[in-house]
Computed example of a mutant assay.
Amino acid sequence: MLLAEGNQTSAVTFTLLGFSEYPDLQVPLFLVFLTIYTVTVLGNLSMILIIRINPKLKTPMYFFLSHLSFIDFCYSTTVTPKLLENLVLEDRTISFTGCIMQFFFACLFAVTEAFMLTMMAYDRYVALCALLVAGPYTWGIVCSLIPTYFLLKLSFCGSSIINNFLCEYSAIVSVSCSDPYIGQMFSSVIAIVNEVMSTLLIILTSYIFIFVTVLKIRSASGRRKAFSTCASHLTAITIFHGTILSLYCVPNSKNSRQTVKVASVFYTVVNPMLNPLIYSLRNKDVKDAFRKLIDIKVHSQCVV
């Protein structure tokens, strides 16, 4: 019997199966994901701190990078703590409100990161930082509210089992007792517009102009330096969009559920850890700023 729409929010609970089919791997997986989350938090917060306090990093590129680190921190924190909890506790339930909120914020930060990376490519030509940063956040909220609205219109039949470790749109829809056609249609259109028509198209167009400009540089060392500057951003884009495309290209079948889970882990848990590592390890200015920060702390402790 369907729950009345008025009380479905308080009555419905979901069960996130996560990786419960591997009982012997619960502790090792917990340690792996805890390590990843720790590196993610420390890496992204350190990037924000270094960029904020170092006057040499007060440039448009680092302004965007600090926001990218903030988004990665929030994105990981939306998903990973619940994943860690489900690996050590037998109770893997999540309330309707909690599930919808997790989906909303995960969608918000995923869309925002996609367009933040786009703006970082566009920033090679202009430095309208505040406006360009506000755009991805605003569009991320809009794109998250639309599918969330359609999820709130669905009806559910009591406790429902979600064969994933997070509340993502297709997983929630699959346990609904309503016809999700209209919501799925809108969500598919949003995904196509965001992933292909907007982000990748703008990024590819931007980098075509960049490569043409770089090739005109007469000095070989100048060309290498210019390509090196873009390498970090291209690496981040490849990882982010590659995992999204692989996730959404997987056929919706029982045989592919584990593949979807693995792709989801990389997309939601691992990727937020990689961005600060990619940009810091390949960036001389960031490494120098980090060394100076460590030297200041060590010196202050020695003085005390």
Rank of each mutant, 00 (worst) to 15 (best):
A130Q: 10
F14A: 12
D72Y: 04
L89N: 08
Y248V: 07
V304M: 09
K284I: 13
K292M: 10
K297L: 15
F266R: 06
I71M: 02
P28Y: 09
F103D: 03
T235A: 12
I100E: 13
M273G: 05
F156L: 08
P60H: 06
T268G: 09
T77H: 04
L3F: 03
L204F: 15
A114N: 12
F165Y: 02
A121F: 10
P272I: 11
Y181C: 07
V303G: 08
D179V: 01
V196T: 12
C167Q: 06
D179S: 14
L34K: 02
L84C: 12
T80A: 13
C249S: 14
M101E: 06
I210N: 07
M273I: 07
I48S: 03
N275T: 12
K82L: 05
R223W: 04
Q102A: 03
I141M: 06
M1W: 06
A171P: 01
L25W: 15
F290G: 09
I51C: 14
Y279S: 04
K261P: 06
Q8T: 11
L117H: 00
R92P: 03
L25F: 14
T93Q: 03
V269E: 09
N54T: 05
V189G: 03
N271G: 05
F109R: 00
M273L: 12
K297D: 12
T13D: 10
I71H: 00
L145H: 05
N164F: 05
L68I: 08
P23V: 11
L245I: 14
Y75E: 09
S155K: 07
T199A: 15
T35H: 01
S280Q: 02
L201W: 15
S256M: 14
E5H: 14
T59F: 06
I202A: 05
H67F: 09
R223P: 04
I94T: 11
T38W: 00
E90Q: 02
R257K: 08
I146Q: 11
K56C: 07
V214T: 11
I172S: 05
T80L: 08
Y279F: 12
V111S: 04
L2I: 03
V286T: 05
R124E: 10
T78E: 02
R218E: 15
F290K: 01
L65T: 04
S155R: 02
C177T: 09
